[in-house]
């Protein structure tokens, strides 16, 4: 059986995707499968770097002009219709979800997003993914082929490093005039759609959540920060320690911190070596964002908060106070050296 991995090189998260895919192919995927990578790119200057990132030796290049990935569909649908490729894999995320879902719809296959593990059997793909906001893991079977799956973003411990040398199997250029910036070309679009429904797409903010996903040292603030000021003080302590800063959903929803700092089921999932959770109860929806951390330290005055039992070490105290003290110690140590 063959698989095709999809690497969206038109967005800044390509490296994170590549790492997730490589890790997943190494540890998350069981079954006798060989495969290739479709690399989507829009800028010639990125081409080489993206090819290097590909998690398989065999690579197919698709060039588009857009930052949105729909131009890929013709190639993918053709590959799917060829019947040879049983499994399409993309990294979790908005574009990954869109690609696998639309592909499954067009090719008549089954789709599952955010797979933790998959196992290819002759007639079905057995997948596990988090359900009920990460309270449980559900096991699913994909029956109809092609199986279209996004893989959990947290396969960072790349035991199997990306292939050293790559073979380019094919190249296609889809960046023709249909691909105006931001244009979605929908192969099934009816007359009702009209031309170029997404005119003038414009990227407003610098990428940042991508950094969170890659973080090695993360401080996550929760409601225990108690206010915007408390949140800012924890963020500042994180900065002084050289840590990245994330927040729980309520903190982001209260606009105590920007939405792109959000960790968990509706935000980023990371696998840092060290994660300090400051003033969050550690509800499963948040915990999902940090559960792959090497060492989890909880700071929470409430010893019954789930995060305490789900941490390696816990400090039962006020989050802001502890983080500020810790920042002083860590910063002192660093300047000392």
């Amino acid at each position: 059986m063959r698989f095709a991995a999809l690497l969206d090189g038109t967005v800044a998260t390509a490296a994170v995707q590549a790492q997730a895919l490589a890790g997943f192919l190494g540890d998350g995927l069981r079954g006798d499968l060989a495969g290739e990578t479709f690399v989507l790119y829009c800028d010639e200057r990125d081409r080489e770097r993206l090819v290097d990132l590909a998690p398989t030796r065999d690579v197919r290049l698709v060039k588009t002009a857009a930052r949105r990935p729909e131009r890929m569909f013709d190639c993918l649908t053709a590959a799917a219709r060829g019947g040879d490729t049983a499994l399409f894999l993309a990294a979790a995320g908005a574009t990954g979800t869109e690609i696998v879902t639309r592909l499954a719809c067009r090719a008549g296959g089954g789709v599952l997003t955010d797979a933790l593990t998959i196992e290819a059997r002759p007639q079905r793909l057995v997948c596990r993914k988090n359900v009920y906001s990460n309270h449980l893991v559900g096991r699913f079977e994909l029956r109809a082929r092609p199986w279209c799956v996004t893989v959990d973003a947290c396969w960072n411990d790349t035991r199997r490093s990306p292939s050293p040398s790559h073979t380019i199997l094919s190249e296609s250029d889809e960046s023709g005039d249909a691909g105006r910036p931001g244009a979605t070309t929908d192969t099934r679009a009816t007359g009702a759609t009209g031309a170029a429904p997404f005119a003038d797409a414009e990227l407003l903010e610098a990428p940042s959540s991508g950094d969170l996903a890659k973080s090695r040292f993360l401080v996550v603030a929760g409601y225990g920060a108690a206010s915007r000021e408390g949140t800012e003080r924890i963020a500042d302590a994180a900065r002084r320690m050289g840590a990245d800063f994330g927040v729980s959903r309520p903190v982001a929803m209260n606009a105590w911190a920007p939405m792109d700092r959000l960790m968990g089921v509706s935000g980023t999932r990371a696998a840092p070596a060290l994660c300090i959770v400051a003033g969050a109860s550690g509800a499963p929806a948040l915990y999902w964002g940090i559960e792959k951390a090497g060492l989890i330290v909880a700071v929470n005055p409430d010893e019954r908060a789930p995060i305490v039992a789900n941490s390696d070490a816990a400090l039962l105290d006020d989050a802001v106070a502890v983080l500020e003290e810790l920042a002083e110690i860590v910063a002192g140590r660093r300047t000392h050296e």
Binding site: V111, V126, V137, G138, R139, E141, P284, A309, S311, D312
Partner: peptide, 14 residues
């Protein structure tokens, strides 16, 4: 095409 077959509990304790 995607059929749920079972639920697993998660042990997060450290």
């Amino acid at each position: 095409a995607c059929v749920p077959t079972a639920l697993e509990t998660i042990d997060r304790r450290r």
